[in-house]
Amino acid sequence: MSESKRTIELTIDGRKTSVPEGSTLLQACQGLAIDVPTFCWAENLTPVNVCRICVVELEGARTLVPACSRKAEAGMVVQTESERVKLSRKLVLELLGSSVDMSLASEFQALATKYDAHPERFGPRAPRAAPGEREAARAGHHYAEDGEHAANVAQPKKVDNELFVRDYAKCMLCYKCVEACGTDAQNTFAIAVAGRGFDARIATELEAPLPDSACVFCGNCVGVCPTGALMFKAESDVREKGEWDESRQTVTDTICPYCGVGCQLTLRVQANQILRVTSPADHSVTSGHLCIKGRFGWGFVQGKKP
């Protein structure tokens, strides 16, 4: 595959580099050990380039371009930390931070510090939406806010099954779960983006509870969610009790015992309880994706009845 590929030369932050044709600017940056932040990108999913934290400045282009999906072209001259880039990243962080609970998104706080982002300058957060309120919003209509509070997606958790919870107050709409449920992994299409604009949300048909939808509870959406919006019920319960304590946790790699495929599992355990099961995104067998048994079928270890 790669031997027939041409090599492309470009300049990033004043450094010349060459990458195989078809590489993204992100890959080119990674080759130079230049850090480009990402939220909606993942190595095991098709880039949707919606979060825009990865934007870089491309000489000659009218706008900034998303490094995660823009293909490298010969002769490109790219700046990854120009003033324009920094401003856009700062604003993306502020817009996310003021509208979504990003407290569990890894790196968010570090990036906010790095780019001097102050989400609070948009004002105090508006109160949490009532149950069903966000789902009732209709395309083309909204209630004009008075500007006193910053509108946000705070809303009650959706707890409709024993395996995982959906806390969309933490949803940054990165589309990863939709991709994992769709053609990138599961091909089940149980969830999609519904609504429009600020009222867009991840939903099943008619906002039905997951057990009434096409969901097969593979948990692949949970595995890719970057913000903790989708979370193992076990983990969510422990966190809600205020007992989450990483210093008391172990992380163990093992192979799923259920079938012959040989999926690698990573188990996060606290107080003898399995709180989270993942698989490495770069694992040759799973690409990070599992089935319901490998993901959730560990009740017997806990001595629970299945």
């Binding site: 825009r52 993306v92 817009l95 003021s98 004002g123 910053a150 429009r196 604009g197 600020f198 867009a200």
Partner: peptide, 21 residues
Amino acid sequence: RDESCGQCVPCRVGTVRQEEL
């Protein structure tokens, strides 16, 4: 704010912040 498709952060949230302002 009404017509943003809602896909990307700068527009989805930025149009809301602009209206609030």
